Amino acid sequence: MTCRHQNVVAIREVVVGDTLTQVFVAMDFIEHDLKSLLTAMPSPFLHSEIKTLMLQLLSAVYHCHSCWILHRDLKTSNILMNNRGIIKVADFGLARRYGDPVGVGGMTQLVVTLWYRAPEILLGASTYSTAVDIWSVGCIFAELLLKEPLFQAKTEIELLGMIQELLGPSTNSLLSESSLSSPGRSMNFSSSHPRRLQQRLDHLAGSATDLIRSLLTYNPRKRVRADEALEHPYFNESPLPKHPDLFGSFPSAAAGEKRRKPFYSPVAPTRAADYRLLD
C-alpha cells in the first residue's frame, strides 16, 4: 500500500472476518504472471516488447526503492501482466523497509528465490541493500532475452559456480571491498566450464549485454541503480520500446479463457522516455 504505482499491483481493501485469522486482501485481478506466460505463449517476446517490460519493471523497482522498500523476491512468477501490455510487481510477502532491524522481520538471509539471489546473500552478508533487487532484475532481463532462466541451479554452491562462469572468478579484494561475504565464507573455486554461460550472451546486442553486466555485478556498491538503468542507451536504440497498447493479448488460464487471435490497438508507439520514472 506504500508503493502505489501503476506497475505495482494495487490493493483495493483489507477485509477482516469474525476472527483475527480471517483477514483477506482484495487486489486487482491481473490475467497472467510472466513466468507462466513465457512458458505458454506461442512465440517469445520481441526485443521491442522486452524493452517495454524492462522499462516498466525498472520504474516499479525505482519507485519501491524511493519509498525505502526492498522487495526481496523479484522473479518472473511475481511479475503479473494484463492483456494491455502492463506489468505489475506483486507478492510483497518478503518485502521490508530498508534498514529494518534484524529480529523484527528485517535483513534475514533466507530471502529471494534461489535462481534470482544475489551473491552477497549467498555468501552470508550481514547487511545488504537495494542492490539485491537489482541483481534479480538482471536475472529477469536475461531470462526474457534467453527465453529461459539464466541460473537454473539446484543448490547455493552450484549457483555460485554458475555466477563465476558468467562473470569470471571473484577476488578476495573484491569480496572484502564490497562486504560480500561473512567471515569464513568465500567464492574462490574453479569452474569446469568457464565460458559456457558467457557464450550464451555473445549473440546479444552489445548494449543489451552491457546492461546485463551492469545489473549483474559482484560488488553491490558498483551495481547500477534502477534510475540509472532506466537511462541506459539500450532503451534508445532500434528497435524502440513498443507501446503497451500494441502488445498482443493472450488467453488467461485464471479466467478460463480460450486462445484467440491477437488484438492490436492503433495507438502509435511512444519514446522510451515516456516510461521512465513513472509514479
Rank of each mutant, 00 (worst) to 15 (best):
residue 1 M to W: 03
residue 2 T to D: 14
residue 2 T to E: 15
residue 9 V to L: 13
residue 14 V to Q: 10
residue 22 Q to D: 15
residue 22 Q to N: 11
residue 23 V to K: 15
residue 26 A to M: 10
residue 28 D to Y: 04
residue 29 F to R: 14
residue 29 F to V: 11
residue 29 F to Q: 10
residue 30 I to S: 03
residue 31 E to S: 09
residue 34 L to C: 11
residue 35 K to S: 13
residue 40 A to L: 15
residue 43 S to Y: 10
residue 45 F to R: 10
residue 46 L to R: 14
residue 46 L to P: 00
residue 50 I to D: 07
residue 54 M to H: 10
residue 55 L to S: 07
residue 61 V to N: 04
residue 64 C to M: 14
residue 67 C to V: 02
residue 68 W to C: 08
residue 69 I to F: 01
residue 70 L to N: 01
residue 71 H to G: 03
residue 71 H to R: 05
residue 72 R to G: 12
residue 76 T to F: 03
residue 82 N to D: 15
residue 85 G to E: 09
residue 91 D to N: 10
residue 91 D to G: 12
residue 91 D to Q: 14
residue 92 F to L: 05
residue 92 F to T: 03
residue 94 L to I: 06
residue 95 A to Y: 05
residue 96 R to S: 08
residue 96 R to E: 06
residue 98 Y to Q: 13
residue 101 P to H: 05
residue 101 P to D: 14
residue 104 V to L: 15
residue 104 V to S: 07
residue 104 V to R: 14
residue 110 L to D: 10
residue 111 V to P: 04
residue 116 Y to G: 05
residue 117 R to Q: 01
residue 118 A to D: 04
residue 118 A to R: 02
residue 121 I to D: 11
residue 122 L to P: 01
residue 124 G to K: 06
residue 124 G to H: 07
residue 125 A to D: 05
residue 126 S to V: 08
residue 129 S to V: 03
residue 131 A to W: 02
residue 131 A to H: 06
residue 132 V to D: 00
residue 133 D to T: 11
residue 136 S to F: 13
residue 136 S to D: 06
residue 137 V to L: 10
residue 138 G to K: 09
residue 138 G to C: 05
residue 139 C to E: 06
residue 148 E to G: 02
residue 149 P to I: 04
residue 149 P to Y: 01
residue 150 L to K: 00
residue 151 F to D: 00
residue 153 A to H: 01
residue 159 L to S: 02
residue 161 G to K: 00
residue 162 M to C: 00
residue 169 P to F: 06
residue 169 P to C: 07
residue 170 S to C: 15
residue 171 T to N: 08
residue 174 L to P: 00
residue 178 S to I: 05
residue 179 S to E: 12
residue 181 S to Y: 04
residue 181 S to F: 06
residue 189 F to E: 05
residue 189 F to G: 04
residue 190 S to G: 06
residue 194 P to Y: 05
residue 198 Q to I: 02
residue 199 Q to L: 13
residue 204 L to M: 12
residue 205 A to P: 03
residue 205 A to E: 12
residue 205 A to C: 08
residue 209 T to N: 10
residue 210 D to G: 03
residue 213 R to T: 04
residue 214 S to Y: 02
residue 214 S to T: 11
residue 215 L to D: 07
residue 216 L to P: 05
residue 217 T to A: 13
residue 218 Y to D: 06
residue 220 P to L: 09
residue 224 V to Q: 02
residue 225 R to Y: 08
residue 231 E to I: 01
residue 234 Y to A: 08
residue 237 E to I: 04
residue 244 P to G: 07
residue 245 D to V: 00
residue 246 L to N: 15
residue 246 L to G: 11
residue 250 F to E: 07
residue 251 P to T: 04
residue 252 S to L: 12
residue 255 A to C: 03
residue 255 A to G: 06
residue 255 A to N: 10
residue 256 G to A: 13
residue 262 P to R: 14
residue 264 Y to I: 13
residue 265 S to E: 11
residue 265 S to N: 15
residue 266 P to Q: 09
residue 266 P to V: 11
residue 268 A to S: 14
residue 271 R to V: 12
residue 276 R to T: 00
residue 276 R to E: 03
